[in-house]
Each structure stands twice: as C-alpha cells, then as structure tokens.
Write a protein that binds this DNA or RNA. Sequence first.
DNA 1: AAGACAAAAAATGAATGCAAAATGGTTCTC
DNA 2: GAGAACCATTTTGCATTCATTTTTTGTCTT
Lengths: 250, 250
Amino acid sequence: MKSTIPEAGVPITPPAAGNGGDRQEASLHGEILLRLRDYVAEGNIPEGGRVPERQLCEMLGISRTPLREALKVLAAEGLIELLPNRGARVRQLSQRDLEELFDVMAGLESLAGRLACEAITDEEISAIERLHYEMYGHYLHRDMPSYFQINQQIHESIVAAARNETLKTTYANFAGRIRRVRYSANFARKRQRWAEAMREHEAILDALRRRAASELSDILFQHLRNKRSAAIEHLAEGQDTRPETTSQGG
Amino acid sequence: MKSTIPEAGVPITPPAAGNGGDRQEASLHGEILLRLRDYVAEGNIPEGGRVPERQLCEMLGISRTPLREALKVLAAEGLIELLPNRGARVRQLSQRDLEELFDVMAGLESLAGRLACEAITDEEISAIERLHYEMYGHYLHRDMPSYFQINQQIHESIVAAARNETLKTTYANFAGRIRRVRYSANFARKRQRWAEAMREHEAILDALRRRAASELSDILFQHLRNKRSAAIEHLAEGQDTRPETTSQGG
DNA sequence: AAGACAAAAAATGAATGCAAAATGGTTCTC
DNA sequence: GAGAACCATTTTGCATTCATTTTTTGTCTT
C-alpha cells in the first residue's frame, strides 16, 4: 500500500502557476518554504499541533526531502519546533515569548526610526503624512480594519526609510512570527488605547519631520511597548491556556 | 585546484563523541549544522567560495541529505547563499552589507540596554563594573586581544541583563554573521578610537547605574556606530575588492 | 590560433528505500 | 479491574538512487 500520492495536486494555496509576481523561487524547496510559511503563519495548524510530513507531502504533491528542508528552515525562523525523532510542531508562544517578540519588534522599529532620520526624504515624509491623515479618517469613522492596515503601512514605510535591507528582512521575519497571534489580537484595542495610539502617531510624525533621531527612537519604542501591553492583556483575557513552552535554552 | 577544503576524511572538529556539554544536538543534521556554522564563520572557506556538497560529505562522513538540510538553514541565517542549480557559496558581504549588519547590531544592543535598565540587578551591574575595570587594565597595558575579549563579555552581559531570550538569540545570530569579518577587523582600532571607546564605556556604565534607559540606548547605539566606522574604514583600507553582492530583495 | 559547438563529466535537486525510534493498541499479570 | 509489558503500525532520520542542469573538455570550423 504505497499510494504515495492518492489525491495529490490539492495544493495548500492555488497552484502557483501564475507566480503572483512578488517573489518567485526557482527551486521546489523554496516554493514549498514560501507556501508552508504562509500556511503555518495563517494558523491553519493549531498551536502546538503536529506537522505531519507525510500528510503535507500528499497535500503539496511532493516528496519528503524538499519538505523536510523547508521544515528545517521554518524551525530556524522560529515558526515551528523540531523534536528529535518526534517530528515538527507548530511553536507555541507563551505569554513571555510574546512579550519578548514584541519587545524585539519595538527595538527594531526604534532602530528603524533612528536610521530613517538620517536618510528619509521630504517626499517620503509627505507620503507618511498622507497615510497618517488617511488613518485618522479611519479612526474617526471607527473603521478598525482599515485603520490597522494603514497603521501597518506607516510602520513599514518607516522601516523602508531606514534604507537597511537587513533590518527590513529581520523585521519581516519577526512580523511573520507574531502574524499568527495578530490574527486574533488585531482588534485588541480599546477605545482608550486607540486615541492614545493616534496621539503617539502624531508625535512620531512630528519627530520624523524634525529628524530627531533619539526622540523618535524613544517614541517608537514606547508606542510599540504600549501596543504590546494591549495585545498581551487581550490575550490574557481571551485565553486561559497559556502554554509554557520549553524556553529554548539557546 | 578546486579543493579549497582540507582533505576528505579529516573531520572539521574532533568527532564530538563526548558532546562537550554546552548544547547537544541529538540529530545528525543538527550536529552538522553546528559544525558547519562554525566552519564557515571561522573563515575556512574563502569569501564567495563554493561549498561543495560532495566534498563536505566525505569530510564529515555523512550523506548529502543532512548536509543539504544544514545548508538550507545556514542560507536562511545569511551565512551562505544558495544559487539555483549552482550550489552554495559563502556569502560575500559588501561594504554596504557590513554597514547594515553593524547598524542592526547597534539597534539590538541599544534595545538590550533599554531593557536591561528595567531588570538589571545591582549585582549584575557590579559584575559589569568589575569587567570594566579589568578591561581598563588591559587598555593601560595595551593588551588588545584581552581588551577585546572583555569588551565582548561586557556587551554580552548587557544583552543577558535584558532578560529576553529572543533578543539574545537574535543578537548571537548577527554576531555570527560578522564573526568572519571580525576575525580580520578585530584589531582595526586606532589608539585614538581606543581611548574614545573607553570613555564611551564609562558613559555606558554611568547610564546603567542610573537606569537611564533612553540615555543608555542612545549611548550604546552611538558606541556601536563608532565601532562600525572604525571597522568599515579598516576594511576599506585593507581590501580593494569590495564585492557588490546581489542585495537579497526580500 | 581563436572561437564555437557538442559531448562527456560532474554537481545539484528531488524521489525512493531502509533502519531505528516512537505511537497505539492489545494482552498479560497482579 | 487497573497497570505494566509487548507487539504491530506509523513516523522519523538518513542513505541511496534517479533525473536535470551545469560545467568542463575536446574537436571542428573559420
């Protein structure tokens, strides 16, 4: 009974025949890596759930070799964890893990702001200002999803303005790690916190206009710190089960 | 003359029969990963040089499967790059790449200092003070290697005091990436810069004692920035060939 | 003699096969 | 009847094998 591919060809995502255009991977394992990363980040596998190789192989229509290569990379990225002889599991993020992740994100954005002050152009600032006002509109209309989307664009604009591809990549990596959590914590914001966030964003813009690197660095860190508090509180309320993952003794 | 690598059958490191004790990897690919990472980071393969699978397999006494898994991870870590159908190469760091890496390191240390101010104990500060004075002794005796070693310990202590394992891991990752460069740039410091660095370290200690988070953050960033300048200048002098690696368009 | 084309050789990418470990279920013992 | 032990099945880890692609080498043409 070696029906390796009983109903293969049922891809996780629509068969990437067109190759969306964002970034293509020539090799199979690269393709698999991109798809698996999204698959896991979008929460298709429950926290701590097993990642069965065989099943995924059938689902993706590939053999185990490239899949296992992709799993190793995902483990290195921190999305999953590999237990010796016991397969891969979706990494459970304890509350502490989340706090740490948010803090590192805060540090990266803080750095981005600092660097941005050195290199950002007036045009880029104008673009961020436009985003800011657009976001303000969503805020007034209490349109949380749109607000959140623009908010993310602003932060990404700051990271982009830092002119540091390494930072950008690292930032994206960490953003991917908490993506799974964000899916449920996006709307953690209370009204109170929302207004506060708007004020902070105005301060960010102000510091950016003046190219006040240290100040912007501080503001951004605090801004993310407050975000962290909101998210953590929200999660603490919503979930009773706060798994204590084995802290990877790095 | 294709063998840039020692003869086969000679293990990179003594066969880890005892398993030193720092961190053991049960799986073979994990073991390989650790060894290969060190092997590459220590500069055993020239910049941009090929990483021949077959040769490494013989050298390590394993098959290609676990080796390739390790290579994928190293590529994800940024130590090597994988060209489709053309194998792995040791990643060449352009001057720009180095600048970016140093800046990210600066951001991470800056963050570490900020976080450390929240959690560091008096005992930890005392320990860092002791290291500082020890380092000062090496400075007076112009003992550059010892100075550098203690210097690294101080920075690691600050990162440890941040109480953030994620940050610590990330920091170690980036430190590994520039390790190869540090091997040649360690002693880039001019006398002038050396004295300056000592003063900065005193300022760091001062801010740490006062738990002045923002201030320490600024000082640490600047300190690393100055380090960056010194290293980059040194490399610019020493090397004419500054390869323009294809900036990975993440 | 230099360049171009073609075939051989080598290396890479992925699939398959095999041994060891883990999981699950059943049976045996107390 | 409950718990431990044993065996079958599944799963994982690694080696081996097969198919492409690349690189090299040799020959031929201009």
